Computed example of a mutant assay.
Amino acid sequence: MGPALLFAPADRPERFAKAAERSDAVIVDLEDAVAPAAKAQARENMLNSTLDPAKTMIRINALDTAESALDLAAVRASKFTTIMVAKASHVDAIAALSDFSVVALCESAAGVLAAAKLAELPNVVALMWGAEDLVASLGGTSSRFVRGPQAGGYRAVATHARSQLLLAAGAAGKVAIDSIYADFADLAGLAEEAEDAVASGFGAKASIHPSQVAVIRDAYRPTAAEVSAAGELLAAADAAGTGVFAYKGQMVDGPILLHARQTLRRSAT
């Protein structure tokens, strides 16, 4: 699965195929994007879709809602096996979903604090975080600064949660998915945030609009110069045959070589 994930509202089935064509994986959304009155039809649309199960996940409603039981029954009747659980926080409840591959969406204070335990569950394949729901769960009003020199950037609590989720996923060897960038018209801001996601170690980033996909892919795709430099560095390491060696005026050790290998890995996706 590639790095650019795209949400598709389950009550808009005409968007499913386009979302699949334009992204690396589709998140069919049965939760926030669907009005209560449309949820039953949304589940039918999911059941009738022709999306590739290997490149699709279904976001279900939070497990403490009545809708989640209906969502789970519908997914179990479908060909899909990967679910994204909204507002995940209860470890035992997520563990009980052993017949699914689960993406735990940690978007509350409780969810972020439980991220490390959630990541250790064998059925959890990835963690994702959500900024606005998180801040709302704390009684706040906005995850980002709206004015001043930091306008558009995350507030400290959101940055802390983002880092905590990334560390939890990394410690357990699971994929970390970065949150959406809600201002889909601000592609420059998205590019900056996606580049930080790559540099920090997020394996993918979610999007809400097709125009965002190319920006995310560009951030994850190394330039030709970066690929060439990584290849040359690894070749020099093979020739040196030692754990630490000098290369172009700098000392090179294991972590730097790992960065180079990751660059080549991203170039191949």
Rank of each mutant, 00 (worst) to 15 (best):
G201N: 09
L6V: 01
D196Y: 15
G148S: 02
S211K: 14
D32R: 08
A115G: 12
V125Y: 03
V75R: 09
F80R: 03
L233F: 01
P53L: 04
P3L: 02
I58P: 08
A237H: 06
A239T: 08
Y154N: 12
I58V: 15
L121N: 00
A151P: 01
G152P: 11
I83T: 02
R43A: 05
A176S: 08
P149T: 13
A172S: 05
P53G: 13
M128P: 00
I216V: 07
A88T: 04
M128I: 10
L5A: 05
S101G: 14
P36L: 00
K79R: 15
T65Y: 01
L264Y: 08
A109K: 12
L257K: 07
L105V: 06
S101A: 13
A25I: 06
A25W: 08
A62E: 09
K39H: 11
K55H: 15
L97H: 09
K117G: 10
E120Y: 07
G2R: 14
P3W: 04
K55P: 01
F202K: 02
V26R: 00
A151Y: 03
E232V: 00
S142N: 15
S89V: 01
L233N: 08
A229F: 05
E31V: 14
I58W: 08
P36R: 01
D64V: 04
E226R: 14
P13A: 03
F80S: 00
D186P: 06
S78L: 08
A204H: 09
L167A: 11
G173Q: 13
N48E: 13
A115V: 11
K117L: 13
